[in-house]
Design a protein around this nucleic acid. Structure first.
Lengths: 375, 375
DNA sequence: CAGCCTTCTGAATCAACGT
DNA sequence: TACGTTGATTCAGAAGGCT
């Protein structure tokens, strides 16, 4: 893994043409050019940490190659915003091409750039799912006392289109947050201490992201074996976390010294044991049990009486797995909905049976059935 | 105060031409037209809560079958992003004209619109000073379990230009925040209870903002006697808070029933003693640490072994913060209870990890985490 | 009256699958 | 692709009723 290579071909790859993805490698190139070498619809998730600031860094050049000067008048301001927008649009467009139809993209930024990025994401046809706030527990103070302490950064999570069926590991997130739904505001310290890559006491990269951030993102929105692309790889936080969580990764980075640091770091990041990577699954992932199976196996007898938790309605179980109540019949779901006058109803949790201990939902029988039949 | 009036003249007022500002009044008109009647450079601060352009789909039902009362008002409907951008640009342009050179503007929004608004703010020549996150202590959950709970809204604070000498009451903010610099993430409950305006038990406005939010904004960025304009006045939160804090206000609103409610409300809002203001602030959030946070930040690794104090049970930590032992899985609390056959269990004190000094409860890690992340 | 329980609600881009 | 079926899914706080 991790062989550094220069992307020589600019030729656009054909969709699913059998082009092998450069898995678990860093591509040393401009991000748009490197993405252009990847096939259509081949990436499960993209995490992007694009340059934030219009004035700093040599990232933004005018079309003629000259450096954008310090911004102090309206004309220059417009000029640099336009250049930034053009750059943003270019990489977002290419990113959308290589993303699978059900893939998602994450972008992180600050108020200097995130509004332009967010608008471009919408303009390119992505569908925003959430904006997430990374609250920094230890932000840099505002030394001059002229503004509020800038204590957060913003992430945007978007799917490729409105109707996409993206991955969201709801149960894993809820478990991670002590059985409460994971919210859109996340608290993490900034990257420091042992985690912060340094060379000769000097930090290698000015904006190294904490692994905790990527950990939560990948746990939430990818599955083991998925391919995660980071077009602004830097020192490879995305790669290190991906390896630990047994996801594949592809990094794109121009600067050799960042690449070198990333290589070392990722090689040192040991994958977790198989059992540790397992996360809580939603019931959806469990085998589906038809209600009739409970009758066939004798867990419920035809003629048995079911009722809702408050004993407002009673229904009789019939041999074919349908219920009958007040002259109406139907499946456990449909009859429950009909009786309540509701558009829908989960019959598994609505209907109860009575035993010595009192009322229990028939969902308990389903769990027993699963346990008994699980290979 | 508070005489409702229709703005009859569309004639653009001349800068500082002696035109009297309609102080402490609601102008019943379209926001751009009403602003056009105000003189150049006459307003100290603008607070704007424009339509969010939510683009909601069909009905949304809670797990209990009840229906969510969604924002479906005509004023929130736009044909396209382009139409929304045009609207945004128009009111931002007019707002900038009437703002004093050292005035500032606040705009609130959600991910549906805030990126477009922020980009437009930059394009119009404003200079962004901060983006502020309003963290909701009691947001609406994500009922279908499809995304992260949308638990915040975003505000943008901007001056008219980069060199402007705007008002920022640094000391007041620091005092308000227990002698720590006020950060960019603010915690407030959503507007409810007595504060929420209702008529016949029905909320008057679907998106009434909490007064606490406006308190902090006006305390931070205006002086007594300043003129605060709200071009999307709604039920007048801005007016009510301005009156309490002895600032002048101007509201712009098209809908008569909102105006009527706002009038009554503002008349009932008595100016406060200076000393009373501080007590209106919400208490600091109690640090609550989900077990998963220890894993994300690397204090505990997936695969790590935990045991009770007498080493009777052993469990393995998984990536999402669940534990696994003897074929059973669950949260630290739930698994502890299951293994002991107890109705409940405090996992923080039950489970231990081993280091060179012997067994220590994982609660020790929680204390370390709090020390490391306390803002 | 305190304490407990039930009900209601809030700026929400809120399902998946088989026929 | 349209439609019907299955069945998954909620947190904090206010308000009101009951013991």
């Amino acid at each position: 893994m991790g062989v550094m290579e220069r992307v020589s071909t600019r030729k656009k790859a054909v969709a699913d043409s059998g082009v092998r993805l450069p898995l678990d490698r860093i591509l040393m190139d401009d991000c748009v050019a490197a993405m252009a070498s990847l096939p259509d619809k081949s990436i499960d998730m993209i995490f992007a940490d694009p340059p934030y600031n219009l004035q700093l860094g040599g990232d933004l050049l005018r079309p003629d190659g000259s450096q954008v000067d310090a911004v102090d008048d309206d004309w220059d301001k417009f000029d640099s915003f336009a250049a930034y927008d053009k750059f943003t649009k270019a990489w977002l467009k290419e990113a959308r091409r290589i993303l699978k139809d059900n893939g998602t993209i994450w972008v992180i930024g600050s108020y200097h750039n995130i509004f332009r990025v967010g608008a471009a994401i919408q303009d390119e046809g992505y569908w925003i799912l959430n904006d997430i706030v990374w609250r920094k527990s230890n932000p840099m103070p505002n030394f001059k006392g002229t503004r509020f302490t800038n204590a957060h950064e913003t992430l945007i999570w978007a799917s490729k289109s409105e109707k996409a069926r993206y991955t969201f590991n709801y149960r894993a997130m809820k478990t991670l947050n002590d059985e409460l739904q994971m919210r859109s505001d996340w608290l993490f310290p900034i990257c420091g201490g042992q985690e912060r890559l340094k060379r000769g006491g000097v930090k290698v990269h000015p904006t190294q992201k904490p692994e905790a951030l990527l950990y939560r993102i990948m746990l939430a929105c990818t599955k083991p074996g998925d391919v995660v692309l980071d077009p602004f790889f830097g020192t490879g936080t995305t790669g290190a976390v991906a390896r630990r969580l047994k996801r594949h990764w592809i990094g794109i980075e121009r600067e050799a010294n960042y690449i070198e640091a990333a290589q070392e770091r990722i090689e040192a990041a040991l994958p977790l044991d198989e059992s540790a990577v397992v996360t809580m699954q939603s019931p959806k992932a469990q085998p589906k049990v038809p209600f009739g199976a409970l009758i066939e196996t004798g867990m419920l007898k035809p003629g048995a009486l079911l009722m809702d938790s408050k004993r407002r309605w009673r229904a009789t179980v019939r041999a074919d797995g349908s219920l009958e109540a007040e002259g109406a019949t139907g499946s456990i779901h449909k009859l429950g909905a009909t009786l309540q006058g509701a558009p829908s109803c989960n019959g598994w949790t609505f209907w109860h049976f009575e035993d010595a201990d009192g009322l229990k939902p028939i969902d308990a029988l389903r769990q027993n059935y699963i346990l008994a039949t699980e290979p």
